[in-house]
């Protein structure tokens, strides 16, 4: 194992660099298209001279390529620049303060989805067309269709307002405050996992090599546990990357509902305030996370499926 695997990982890592640069560039170009700048909003009457000073200080009058070069240099040295609205704070500080909460929320929700959804899918696939299967698929179809804001609101309505089982309605402090947001965010991905795992397992079970494994007299436990499951997990791993995008989207809503001071909530505030160095910094950050997640997915994929190591030379 591992020359070819190692070579693949290195190739894949090297390839990530231009993608990150391109994403920074795209974000930069997009952000420059936004009309207006934060110092010229009508609500804040600032004398013309101060405005110009501020614009100079933040480099808003430099040509775009200078701004871009400065910005890329900043990102690569982990310096996302100052906030344009909150003048005492840098984007780095904002990230440092808000990001860990979002990361924890997303991570726990993903964990919940995997721990709950994957076994559910496996159980359903082991007994296709049983009541368990129908129940799991009902959950999976409904869970994926109901928007998370309804689930979150109903959670609060029942668990906090009606039954008062000891969960708070908002915040992100002790574990009691984390249960509802994590489950509300993780339910749809769990439903997705369950459905995907069931589908791929049933499909894998039809493969010729499973019949070979049976013809060899292998025990059912080994056939399901090694041959079927290992091959079924490949598409599941591939789907985990895009799921992260979903978690980001979902966290915007969940943080709003549970009043969690995370990155998603801050992002919305920054967009409304036109604090575009913050919007840009956070967009780049989220993009890099998605890119890194896809990187991890691809490497896992190569570990699970030996064919890809060579095919994608």
């Amino acid at each position: 194992m591992s020359g070819s695997l190692l070579a693949y990982v290195v190739r894949r890592l090297v390839w990530t660099i231009p993608v990150v640069l391109l994403v920074i560039f795209l974000t930069f170009v997009l952000m420059r298209q936004i009309e207006g700048n934060p110092f010229r909003t009508s609500e804040r009457a600032v004398p013309e001279s101060i405005q110009r000073n501020l614009e100079r200080k933040y480099g808003l009058n430099d040509p775009w390529y200078v701004q871009y070069a400065m910005y890329t240099k900043g990102v690569l040295t982990f310096d996302l620049g100052p906030s344009l609205v909150l003048r005492q704070r840098t984007v780095n500080e904002i990230v440092k303060e808000h990001f860990p909460r979002s990361l924890e929320l997303g991570g726990l929700a993903f964990l919940f989805a995997a721990v709950f959804g994957i076994p559910l899918g496996i159980l359903a696939a082991l007994r296709p067309n049983s009541w368990l299967d129908y129940g799991a698929m009902f959950f999976s179809n409904v869970g994926f269709a109901v928007p998370s804001f309804l689930i979150a609101t109903l959670f609060i309505y029942y668990f906090v307002v009606q039954w008062d089982v000891g969960f708070p309605t908002s915040g992100w402090t002790n574990w009691e405050s984390k249960v509802l947001p994590v489950v509300a965010l993780g339910l749809a991905p769990a439903a997705y996992f369950a459905r995907l795992v069931r589908g791929t397992m049933l499909e894998t079970a039809q493969q010729d090599y499973i019949r070979t494994a049976q013809a060899k007299g292998l025990r059912r436990r080994r056939i399901v546990g090694l041959h079927v499951l290992r091959n079924s997990l490949i598409p599941v791993v591939t789907a985990a990357g895009p799921l992260l995008g979903y978690l980001i989207t979902g966290s915007f809503v969940i943080e709003e509902i549970f009043a969690i001071p995370g990155i998603g909530r801050y992002y919305v505030t920054a967009v409304t305030a036109r604090d575009y160095s913050v919007v840009m910094g956070l967009t780049v950050l989220l993009s890099v996370i998605v890119i890194l997640a896809n990187l991890v997915v691809d490497i896992l994929y190569a570990v699970l499926d030996p064919r890809t190591r060579e095919a994608r030379a």
Binding site: L26, L286, N294
Partner: peptide, 15 residues
């Protein structure tokens, strides 16, 4: 694909 869906849509709306 690296650009996350919702932020991308939000930025486009802002543009």
């Amino acid at each position: 694909y690296g650009l996350p869906y919702l932020p991308f849509a939000i930025i486009t709306l802002a543009i």
